[in-house]
Design a protein around this nucleic acid. Structure first.
Lengths: 135, 135
DNA sequence: GATGCTGATTACTTCAACGATACTGGCCTA
DNA sequence: TAGGCCAGTATCGTTGAAGTAATCAGCATC
């Protein structure tokens, strides 16, 4: 419930960035994943979300709050404390995430293969063109 | 298989544009839906895809071809004929589309309600502010 | 008195997607 | 010889999302 978030939970090399599916905007799905085990604080979210700036994180959370996906609770303490927690609606996104994961497990390799062979043939025609040009 | 596409198959007023899920880029999911019943020609796709310009449609189809989602077949006739058809990989996207539809059926109303009440309260504070200002 | 923590905000810049408009080339028909 | 059909290209402009860098206020600690 309160385990610290793994700073490496999102591998930047993971091909999931090639997935032809997106949930919310760029960071929404990752925020949902970070909030899976309970409420988290603003700066706590910045760990796994490598490279997100406070501006973009604030924007993302504001948009999710507007859509009823998270709740924002500010505690009147010092230093200030703000907690973000998934609503039931936010939790319901896990069904979509599961579907996306299932699709990826089954089909992403084919997509990646298609892309690679497409680029290989593009490279081949480039090579051909340059050879024609040299001769 | 060869029934003409309904020009109104995508209602621009449909709230599905608010779905927190997206497949490919803006037009990809709609192209997939158009190709469900068999191959279609370039200009045939422009009917339901209201307002898409040939440039953007060509870009979209090129990207889908690169990812192995559609095949492009050019017939050497006059006037020229080109047909686009879903591959098996392209067909597999229907599982994702079905998941998105199921989520929307169940949860989109809540999201829309959250958004409306958020904007109502934003409007209310605006009203309050303007009232304060007037007095 | 200086610094740091927390949860932001502001101004500026960059970039890619998207869109509007016009045009091409080869063949066919009038 | 003029225009139309098809499947696109070419060129330019707009827009919005995202990133960079700097800054804020209030309190606590050094």
């Amino acid at each position: 419930m309160a385990k610290p978030l793994d700073p490496d939970m999102f591998d930047p090399m993971c091909p999931s960035s090639a997935m032809p599916i997106q949930i919310g905007d760029k960071w929404t799905a990752m925020v949902v994943l970070c909030l899976e085990d309970g409420p988290r604080r603003f700066n706590e979210l910045r760990g796994p979300l490598r490279g997100i700036t406070p501006k973009v994180l604030a924007q993302t959370l504001r948009a999710m709050e507007r859509d009823g996906l998270v709740t924002r609770t500010a505690y009147d303490e010092n230093p200030p404390r703000v907690e973000y927690e998934l609503t039931m609606l936010g939790h319901s996104l896990f069904t979509l995430i599961a579907a996306a994961r299932a699709w990826s497990r089954e089909h992403l390799p084919s997509l990646l293969a298609a892309r690679a062979s497409y680029e290989a043939s593009a490279d081949a025609s480039l090579l051909e063109a340059s050879r024609d040009h040299i001769q």
